[in-house]
Simulated assay, not measured.
Amino acid sequence: MTRIFPRPLTAAFAATAALSLAACAYNETLGRNQFLIVDDAALTQQSDAAWAEALRTQPTSRDAAANERVRRVGGRIVQAAGLTNRSWDYAVFVSNSPNAFVLPSGKIGVTTGLLGLVRNDDQLAAVLGHEVGHVVARHAAERYSTTALSSVAISGVQSVAGDYAKAAGAIGGLGAQLGVLLPFSRNHELEADRLGVDYMQRAGYRPSESIALWRIMAGQRQGSTPEFASTHPSDASRIAALEQYIASQGWS
C-alpha cells in the first residue's frame, strides 16, 4: 500500500536525505564513509575556547615531572600519528577521577587520577594514542554532523505532529539517541582504540599494555551502564576487540 506523507514531512525527509548524500566522504584511515557537514577547522575556535575555559576553571597540576611525562609520551604518539604539522598543548588536571580528553585543535587533558592509575608509560601511551586517534579519525566533526542531522530530522517530524509535537519530539529524540548517536559513539571509541594501538606500536610502546590498561579500568569501576545505553563500549567488548586486533597484527 502506498503511503502519502504530508508535504512538510516529505520536504524534511528530502532535505535530510540530500544533506546526507552531499556530505558523505570516504576516510582511508578508517576504511569507511563519514558523514561530515563541518570541517575540523570550524571546530578549532570552539575547541580553543573550551580549552581556555578548562584551564581557567579547573585546577591544574604544577608537578613538573608529571607534566613532562605527558608531553614526552604524547609527543611520541603525535609523531607516530603524523600530526606534527600542528601545535599540541597538554595539561594535567587535578582530579581523582581517571580520565583524559582531546580537542580537535590539538589539546589533550589528563587527570592526576589517571596518572596514578597507569602502571607504566606504555599504558599512558595507550590512553594518549586513543585520544589522538579521535583527532585523526575526525570523530568530533562526525559526531557534530550526525547530531545536527538528527536535530533536522526530528524538527521536521515535530512541525507536522500537531498536538502530539512534544511526544513525537521526545520519542524521536530517544530513538535517535539509542538508535544512532550512542551506538555511533561506541563505534568511535573502538576505532580510536585500534588507531591508538597502531600509534603505540609505531612509537615503540607495547600494544598489549592497552589490554592491561582496560583490565585495570574495569577493576576500579564502581558500577556500570548497560552497553546499549552507553556512549562507550563495555570493558569486556573493548578488551575483546583489542585482543583480536593485536593478535591479528602479530604484536605483543
Rank of each mutant, 00 (worst) to 15 (best):
S237W: 01
L174Y: 12
M200I: 12
G162H: 03
V160Q: 08
Q222Y: 06
A161K: 02
I211P: 08
L174S: 14
F184A: 14
L182P: 09
A170P: 03
S159I: 03
Y205A: 14
Q177F: 13
R238D: 13
L242G: 06
A236W: 01
P233G: 05
Q220K: 10
S230D: 12
L181Q: 09
A161D: 10
M217S: 05
L190Y: 07
G173C: 05
R238L: 13
Y205L: 14
G196R: 01
D163Y: 02
S185E: 01
A229P: 03
V160L: 05
N187P: 05
P207M: 07
G219F: 08
G223Q: 04
D198T: 00
R238A: 13
E189M: 07
D193F: 01
Y199R: 01
N187F: 09
Y205H: 10
N187S: 15
A212Y: 08
A240T: 13
S210Y: 06
A176E: 13
L213G: 02
L190S: 14
A168I: 02
A170K: 04
E227K: 03
R186G: 06
G219C: 09
Q158W: 04
G169V: 14
D198K: 00
L195I: 14
L174Q: 15
D235M: 12
F184V: 05
A168W: 02
F184Q: 14
G204K: 06
G196A: 00
I239D: 01
F228W: 11
F184G: 15
G162P: 08
Y199G: 09
P183K: 02
P207K: 05
L178P: 12
G173S: 03
F228H: 09
H188A: 11
G196K: 00
A229T: 01
I171V: 14
W214M: 07
L195H: 07
S234L: 13
Y164F: 14
A212D: 10
A212R: 09
T231P: 12
I216V: 13
A229L: 00
R206D: 13
E191G: 09
D163W: 01
M217G: 05
